[in-house]
Amino acid sequence: MAIHSLFIVRGLLILLALTAFYSIWTASHLLKKVMAWLVFQISIALLWLSSAYVYHGHLNPLPQVAAFLILASSTGILGIMLVFCLGVSRRHDSLDIEKINHGVSL
């Protein structure tokens, strides 16, 4: 029964990851892309967390630490991405991909 719940949880997480990955490709705004990436990372971190509960009936610390590290590093990466978005926005006056790719650089 526990295994079945784990399958369902992981299935839902993979579905979330796939949806986020699809959004990364299709979003036409840089911030939306960044947010989709963040959801993708969160789903991966949760997948890691899901494997903490199958260690001889005890909580396994390593996946928890891995999930924490992934979330912490994702926060840092998100910050850098936002800095880049700010730079793009200043130079192109927009974060819309159509305008950035075809607009004249300042």
Binding site: F21, I24, L30, K33, V34, W37, F40, I77, I80, M81, F84, C85, G87, V88, R90, R91, H92, I100, S105
Partner: peptide, 13 residues
């Protein structure tokens, strides 16, 4: 900025 963002973003994905 644009290409830097694309490199970092696509590389991170």
């Amino acid at each position: 900025w644009r290409d830097g963002f694309y490199l970092f973003f696509s590389g991170s994905v």
